[in-house]
């Protein structure tokens, strides 16, 4: 199966940074969901989902991020979404999720 989604993982301070590249839709979203689930299953409570290299995100991708955010909240952790592409940010804004998520144009660990 060829999946056009690149996912990398790195540690930055207290945060685990999951960087995603490609197009997130109903075909590729399961790959992201599995990766985030795997990271959260390890007990990671502070996570950054870096969407800087994501060219496309639809409601299926949003659903994956919502589920991850809920898990992080339930674990009393924190999740940062990094995104600076206007057309991706617009998806968060239209759906009313731009303030529900902690969205930043870049990640600067405190």
């Amino acid at each position: 199966m060829v999946v056009d989604l690149d996912i990398d993982e790195a540690e930055r301070g207290e945060y685990t940074v999951v960087s995603v590249g490609g197009e997130i839709d109903v075909y590729t979203a399961p790959v992201l969901r599995e990766r985030l689930t795997e990271v959260l299953d390890r007990g990671v409570a502070k996570i950054v989902v870096d969407l800087s290299q994501v060219q496309f995100l639809d409601s299926t991708g949003l659903g994956v991020l919502v589920v991850a955010m809920r898990r992080v909240e339930a674990a009393d952790g924190s999740m940062v979404v990094v995104c600076d592409r206007p057309h991706i940010l617009k998806v968060f804004e239209i759906t009313g999720l731009s303030t529900w998520f902690d969205i930043r144009s870049e990640f600067d660990e405190q």
Partner: peptide
């Protein structure tokens, strides 16, 4: 648009798609 605190993501999605199209 569904409340993100309450959505159930199932095989048919989380429910953001149709209101997104309408918007």
């Amino acid at each position: 648009f569904p409340d993100p605190e309450a959505v159930e993501v199932c095989g048919q999605g989380a429910g953001f798609g149709i209101p997104l199209m309408r918007r």
